[in-house]
Design a protein around this nucleic acid. Structure first.
Lengths: 209, 209
DNA sequence: ACCTGAACACCGTTCAAGT
DNA sequence: ACCTGAACACCGTTCAAGT
């Protein structure tokens, strides 16, 4: 009965230090804020406040705001890779599964537009070569390369240099995703699915006569 | 001989008001700063100072920073359109000229990475539908559509719906441009020219067997 | 080691006031 | 109409100090 007013929120948590993995909690909270209100709305002060931690506690785990954003981007690439691999494997590593990968890629971007922008929008400071970010980015790319190599082995795809081919495919889905997110395709634009389907169909036949 | 120290810079310009078109000067200076030091380095205070104007003079011509960035983006789309049209016409509106347009697009982005990012990076406030920006963006897109329609008329291109086809092509060059700018293609990536050439070659044959 | 509050330098924006 | 300086609210970051 030491507390006289149990209904009131305590000003300080029982344990003064953050319990568990503060670094992880910071990234999660940052992702949540970015998804909900956009990158511009992300402030270190608000993130700290949300976690019941001072606004400078973050500097124990990240060099600066850019480093936090790099972690957010890395997290995004990990999620993206998992979804790509799932589409590929669930579809039986077939040409149809390749199709599903393309749709999954664009769907991820449309579903998490702000997060996707952090992954690609140049928010991470230029000089920085964040190791985790580089690895996760390369990992997502590798999922695409693996699928292409498999298709080539099965005689379904031209024998182009796999990395060059992968960069080309990546540019297509990335371009589609970005244009859709930025609402640059105009009001009369077709649905994302239709765009992806058209792109894949033209990759099948070429566009020239 | 009223001035006792001619060598010293005058604190104030002879005429207290900015001469000529301040709006135009603000955009030009913003473009210059962005190109030289990136979007993050753009501050309204610095722009004003560079033009010998107070830091709030800008608000006579733009609602806020986002509106200035919209004008910067619109300017970028205009320049891009001019370069696309020039490549198309100088190449004789041929299939080869179409090729040149693709190279010109990616070249523009690589030559003006920060400016290009402003055009697409979601810097312009979401709610805003800046008229000038919408028009210039549509104009650049139309240059691509016109070229495609001409190629179709000449029997060089499949008779797909031109706008759908244009969005597909746009996604490809935009995706290539963004990945290159963001240095996402890795250290072993081929030169931009090679990427564009490969993309166009695969658009010719398709990628499947 | 990890966290804190106070302080610093900086920014976009507003506003009453000047010509 | 166009421009100005002062002021406001906000932010990332630093730092000496606490446990």
């Amino acid at each position: 009965m030491a507390r006289s007013h149990p209904r009131r929120l305590a000003r300080k948590p029982a344990d003064r230090y953050h319990h568990g993995d503060l670094r992880r909690a910071l990234v999660t909270e940052a992702v949540r804020t970015i998804q909900a209100k956009g990158v511009d709305a992300l402030t270190l002060r608000a993130v700290g406040q949300k976690l019941g931690v001072s606004r400078t506690a973050l500097y124990r785990h990240f060099a600066d705001k850019s480093a936090l954003l790099a972690a957010v981007a890395a997290e995004g690439f990990r999620t993206l890779r998992l979804q790509l691999v799932r589409s590929w494997e669930d579809g039986g590593r077939s040409a149809e599964a390749f199709n599903a990968m393309g749709v999954a890629y664009v769907t991820f971007a449309i579903t998490h537009p702000s997060h996707y922008r952090v992954m690609f929008g140049g928010f991470v400071r230029d000089g920085t070569t964040d190791l985790e970010l580089a690895q996760e980015g390369a990992g997502a790319f590798q999922a695409l390369v693996d699928a292409l190599v498999t298709l080539q082995r099965n005689g379904l795809l031209r024998q182009d240099e796999p990395f060059l081919l992968a960069r080309f495919i990546w540019a297509i889905v990335h371009g589609l995703a970005m244009l859709i997110i930025d609402r640059r395709l105009g009001p009369g634009a077709p649905e994302p699915d239709e765009l992806v389907r058209f792109a894949l169909a033209r990759l099948r036949t070429g566009i020239f006569i």
